[in-house]
Each structure stands twice: as structure tokens, then as C-alpha cells.
Design a binder for these strands. Structure first.
Lengths: 337, 337
DNA sequence: CTGTTAGCGCATTCAG
DNA sequence: CTGAATGCGCTAACAG
């Protein structure tokens, strides 16, 4: 691959001039510029991002860690972040941690070695010592969707408490008293928020809260499925279920189908993470729609602010958290009781 | 961030020794090695992947271009490729082209500048001049899912002809004669294959083929939806529909629902891209399951072979294409007629 | 307006 | 077994 020196030689100028033509970093006489551009074209020269990064100490790369790229929610998040960030000339390195803290750690290490300019992280839940290294090296961290177990940067997330509350309140108002909720490990801030919103709704409506109706499951579809089966057999008196994510929703619907339990007749349903197919099952699902676009916008805005501050040597950790509201979309999967 | 020189100084050795300790590239006296490792730990030294790439001319990075990261199919593809490739110490830079040739071109340019070691590409359909540059610089290209419009590397794809044939034959055997098929632009090899398989099935069964039942739609959900509506109103006599991807399936189901058309009573349905929710709609969808794992395996194996060959200065283009078979899963969305 | 030069952080000869 | 020296491709002073 031809280098800046090849171009300089061919154009009969110095490498400095070539560099300045390429980067528009100082005025170059039109004829000189043309000679350089011609040489560049003839040699099919393409500056090495590697070499450039080495000298400038800037990679224009943002590391993105998501817990599960096959989840529609995270996939949409990645797409949104990429679209907004590319407008500012940043490129993403997306890594899929698959909900494993060990993978998260490995990727943090790799991305640190690659000297990314910043990170957007949906953490797995466990604290990561490497976060501190990023902070120590002034590489801003922005957490998205989930709060880190240790504060190492601003958080952009859903108001999970409100969302959990809204789902529960919707059912309570329809007359439900025995509402089960399917959640993941309470190590995740999303889970804590949604569960506590659920609890608070019961308190506010002065209804007895049965903690045993909070079912905890692993994130895999099979696990969600099994937990849903268990839920239906051990607590058959419940009249409603809240599934707190996409996989839980699938698991619940599978279990209902197997046990010939009809919704909303036998049990009402509220699903988190709205999806196109929620409209296509019979009857359509009442869902909590997460404002993905807003999350992406806020994450990118915050990250950019952090990158700015960094150059100004201020403390990037001082940026404010952002919480966005979800929206309950009432459809036919919940009935009055 | 501390450098190799800081470590060398602290350990009282040369940078060469530090380098060799880090890379295990020559025998170092145990005490020396220990001194180096201690210094590394104390300084929290982390070699710069940038600098290393500059000297070695290797990035251990693979560029991955997918058409639409929010599609369950491509998301699963990315996940599979990442899982297999990380075992060999490669990292991915995943880029979402959003089905736009211009974005594909921009990303090719960026990844070339970043000197990736290889590429896995699901092309948008239009030929990309930059492919030639990769080939010229001996950076192997592996195409996945879709054939490139110009042969620039091995192709790992579905046997789309067989899949289209299987879907159509399934319906023909059930007695259907008026079968509509919803496809994307025939610029895509996947579309051509599926469509031609459809045609061939009619020929083989000596049935008249109505070309006007091949409906072409853009890939967006709204477009698929509108095309499905049009299909149902302009060709109401059809007794079956084949939706050739995830979005088309959603569009068809939406249109059926709006027009109160029941499947399989009024119209039978075959959907490409099996998804968990296909089991949860009523009745469950007969689907074509794509062997994603096999695609990923073959792509990674082929890429690794190409990377090997490259070092051996052989022609990486000479690697064989791989075609894998899809599987039709008969469920209740098709009825006998 | 342009050229010279000195690194950026590392791997890798070649000597010892 | 170890060190000194060179260069990867580029940008950024500094000089002219």
C-alpha cells in the first residue's frame, strides 16, 4: 500500500504538504494541491488510520458494549447510536458480551489497548475493575440502559420504576389483585427499578403484596420458558402476568400455549419491549414501549459532551444522568376483572 | 498512559526485552522476566494495539458489513461470526449499511484505512469499486448470505433456489395453484434464487405460472405492508402467499389482519426466517429455517483459509463457495385445498 | 506558501 | 540471554 512518502515523491513535494492537503490543515497553492491530489489518485493512496492515530493520539473510535446483540432492543440501540455518531465522524466497535461479565472484561481490555476515544456500555451487572482504568486515562464512559454497579460515568436509562409502576397500575385499575411479575436477576438496575415500581403500585393502592409472585429467571429463552411454566403451575390463582423483557414475553406465551391457558380470559398480560409482532398475536399484547431513539440521542449527546470536557480537562464524570419515560400501549391482552 | 519505555526503565532492561516478555517471543531469564512483569503491573502498562499494528502490519481485526443489524437474521449472523472469530484472537468491526450502497462504500473506505486483516460482507446488491482495492492489497473478502454483483471472493450463502422451490412445492402439493410470492429487489442474489426456485416448481409440476403474482417490495416494514395490501386487493383469488423474509412476513400478517382475512382458511402462508414468535401467532407459521450457525461456521472457516493463503501469497479468490440448505418447518399456516 | 525534522509506541534486526 | 538501533506512516513544530 502506498505511503505518504510515495505521494510526496510523485508530486514533487514534501510529506508535510501532502499531509496538509489531505487534512486541509494549511493553505496550499492551488497548483501544488492539484499535483498532490493527482498523485494521490494515481497511487490510490489512502492514509493509514493506524499511523495517524499513533501520532495524534486520537482514534475517532467509540467502543460499544451490549449485553445481547440478538435482542431487538439492543440491536435497535446499536443502530441508533451508530447513526448518530457517524454524523460526527466516529466509528463504532460493537462488542457483544452475551451477558457474561468475563466477556465484558475481555472486551474492555481489548478496547483499552485499541485506545478508543470513548465508550458506551450496557453493563452485564457485575462491577468491572477496568472501568477505573478508562476513567484514569480520561476516556469517557457512558452507561446505557443499565446503571453500573459502581459509578464510573453518566447513565442514560429508562425510568424503570415508572415503567414497572405503570404496568402494575394498569392491571390494578382493571381490577387485578394477584399479579405475577417475571424478572431477571436483581443485579440489574432495570430489574430493580421495574420490580420496585411494581411493589410501590401495590402500596399506593393499599393492596397486599405477595413477594412470592416475583419470579426470577435467567435471560435465556429456555430459562424464561421454564420459569413461566413454574409460575403457572405454582401460582395458578394469579390473574395477570407482567413480562419484563422480550425473552420473558416469549417464554410466557409459550407456557400459556402449552398449558392451553387463554389470555386475556384466564390471565391478563403486559409485555415490556414493544415489537411489531405484538400486534400480530391473538389478541394483540399490551406493551411497554421503550423510547429507543431518545436513549440513543441522550447517550450520544452525553458522550460528545464528555469528549469535549475531556479536552478541556474537566471531570467527565460530572455529567448528568438522563432518564427517559416509557409508554404503555394498551391493547387487548388485559381484561377487566 | 505508560509506554514500553517506562516499563523498560523501571525494570532496568531494554525495551526489546519488555517486548519479548510481553509477546513470549524469545527466552528471557526468569528473574528478568519477573522484573518486567512487576514493572508492567506497577505501571498498569497495556501495549498499544495501534503502535503494534503499525510495526507488524497486522491488526487482527475483521470488518463485518451487514445490511440491517435490526433484522434477527443478521443480528444472529453477527453474533455467530463474533463467537467463532474471537476464539482465533480476532476482533470485529461491525458496520450496519442499512441496505444503502453509499453507506457500504463509506464503510469499505473506512475499513481499508484501518487496515483490517479481512472482511465478511453481506453486500447491498450494487457493485462496489472498493472491493477491487481490498483484493489488490491482498485483504481477503468473504461474502455472506448474498452473492456480490462482481466476484471478488468466496460466497457463503443459502441454497436459495432450493429454499424457494421447497416453499412452493409444499404449497403445490397441498393443492395450491395460485401462489403469490413477496420478494425484494431482484438485484439481490437471495431474491433471484428464491424466485427462480418458485418458478421452477411450477414448471416441474406442469402448472401455469402467473408472473404477476411475483410482488416486489422495498425492504422497509411500511413498504412490505403496502405491497401486501396491494397483493391482497389486486389478486384476491390467490390461495397462498410466500413471504421471503422477516419483514415481508410482518407486512403480510398486518395486511391480513386489517382486511380480516384468516389464514389458513382464506389463504395459506409460508414465511422465510424462522423466529420464536412464529410459534405464537395463531395458527403458528410454516417457516423456512435458515441454518445460521452453518453459515457462520463456513464463513469463518473460509476467511481463515483466505488469511492463511494470503501469507502464502496464493490467490485467496480461489477458495470455494459454500451453499447450505434451509429447512422447511411445516406448521399450521398452510392448509390442503 | 513549503520543507526539514523529530517523534508517536512498538517489533525486530543485528551485535554482543 | 540481552541491548542498541532502525523504521512502520503519519502529524506537528519550527524554519525558511
Amino acid at each position: 500500500m502506498s505511503t505518504i512518502r510515495d505521494v510526496a515523491k510523485l508530486a514533487g513535494v514534501s510529506t508535510a504538504t501532502v499531509s496538509h492537503v489531505v487534512n486541509n490543515s494549511r493553505t496550499v497553492r492551488p497548483e501544488t494541491r492539484k499535483a498532490v491530489l493527482d498523485a494521490i489518485k494515481r497511487l490510490n493512496y489512502r492514509p493509514s488510520a493506524i499511523a495517524r492515530s499513533l501520532t495524534t493520539n486520537v482514534t475517532r473510535t467509540i467502543g460499544v458494549l451490549v449485553a445481547n446483540i440478538t435482542s431487538p432492543f439492543f440491536a435497535a440501540l446499536v443502530r441508533g447510536i451508530e447513526n448518530r455518531l457517524e454524523a460526527y465522524g466516529y466509528q463504532l466497535i460493537v462488542c457483544n458480551t452475551d451477558e457474561q461479565a468475563s466477556r465484558e472484561a475481555r472486551y474492555l481490555d481489548l478496547l483499552l489497548a485499541r485506545r478508543v476515544d470513548g465508550m458506551i456500555i450496557a453493563p452485564t451487572g457485575e462491577p468491572q475493575p477496568l472501568w477505573r482504568d478508562f476513567v484514569a486515562h480520561n476516556i469517557p464512559l457512558v452507561f446505557i440502559d443499565r446503571k453500573p454497579s459502581e459509578p464510573c460515568g453518566p447513565v442514560i436509562a429508562l425510568d424503570n420504576f415508572a415503567a414497572g409502576y405503570a404496568a402494575t397500575e394498569h392491571l390494578i385499575r382493571l381490577g387485578h389483585r394477584h399479579i405475577a411479575i417475571l424478572v431477571r436477576s436483581p443485579m440489574l438496575s432495570t430489574v430493580v427499578g421495574r420490580r420496585d415500581g411494581y411493589r410501590q403500585a401495590f402500596r399506593d393502592y393499599k393492596l397486599p403484596l405477595d413477594e412470592s409472585l416475583i419470579y426470577v429467571s435467567d435471560y435465556a429463552l429456555e430459562a424464561a420458558h421454564e420459569t413461566a411454566q413454574r409460575l403457572l403451575t405454582t401460582s395458578p390463582w394469579i390473574t395477570a402476568i407482567i413480562a419484563t423483557n422480550h425473552t420473558m414475553t416469549l417464554g410466557v406465551l409459550e407456557a400459556l400455549q402449552e398449558q392451553y391457558i387463554k389470555y386475556p380470559d384466564d390471565v391478563s398480560l403486559v409485555a415490556f419491549d414493544d415489537n411489531p409482532w405484538h400486534l400480530l398475536v391473538t389478541p394483540p399484547l399490551t406493551s411497554i414501549r421503550l423510547p429507543i431513539q431518545e436513549l440513543c440521542d441522550a447517550a450520544v449527546t452525553t458522550l460528545r459532551a464528555a469528549l469535549e470536557k475531556k479536552s478541556a480537562r474537566a471531570d467527565a464524570r460530572a455529567l448528568p444522568d438522563v432518564f427517559v419515560k416509557a409508554q404503555l400501549i394498551a391493547r387487548a391482552s388485559c381484561r377487566k376483572i
